[in-house]
């Protein structure tokens, strides 16, 4: 019987955590893309039909990569895209914070609360570090006997 090492276990927990976060982020935004488009517009980067297009497609991407993270054949690409998205979200929050914008984050659907930029950035940073750990374990497992979970 093949033993399951600690890194593989931690990677599984990390993937479950990330998948849960991204699925819970995606579903309300799939239900109400108009509200998400308003949130995107608030960042003053893209607006109008571009914001609407992003608001329609991005939640589906989040859902697909969240599920992909839990499948062996889409895991690495999903983790790579998640890392890219989190880096993008961190940049957007830093940009909005520096410009003094009072945004609606839009992270988990619409919210009336004022943004806590420190919390948003630290949270996404923690998720990014988790994602990089998953990628590192996946790269390591590629060249090792499979402990597929």
């Amino acid at each position: 019987m093949v033993g399951i090492d600690t890194r593989t276990c931690l990677s599984l927990l990390a993937r479950l955590l990330l998948a849960g976060v991204f699925i819970s982020a995606a579903l309300p935004k799939i239900q109400d893309p108009l509200a998400f488009a308003v949130s995107i517009d608030g960042y003053r980067i893209i607006s109008g039909s571009w914001a609407m297009a992003a608001a329609t497609a991005l939640p589906w991407l989040e859902l697909v990569i969240a599920i992909g993270l839990l499948t062996p054949w889409l895991r690495r690409a999903s983790a790579g895209i998640i890392a890219g998205l989190l880096a993008l979200f961190i940049s957007l929050h830093v940009s909005a914070w520096m410009r003094g914008l009072n945004i609606n984050c839009g992270c988990f659907g619409s919210s009336a609360e004022s943004p806590d930029y420190v919390w948003l950035i630290l949270r996404n940073l923690a998720l990014l570090i988790t994602t990089l750990f998953i990628l590192r374990v996946a790269a390591g497992n590629k060249h090792a006997p499979q402990h597929t979970l």
Partner: peptide, 14 residues
């Protein structure tokens, strides 16, 4: 191929 599958599934959802 993985990226292509993810892109395709996202397009279907959209």
């Amino acid at each position: 191929r993985e990226f292509a599958i993810i892109l395709l599934l996202t397009a279907l959802g959209t």
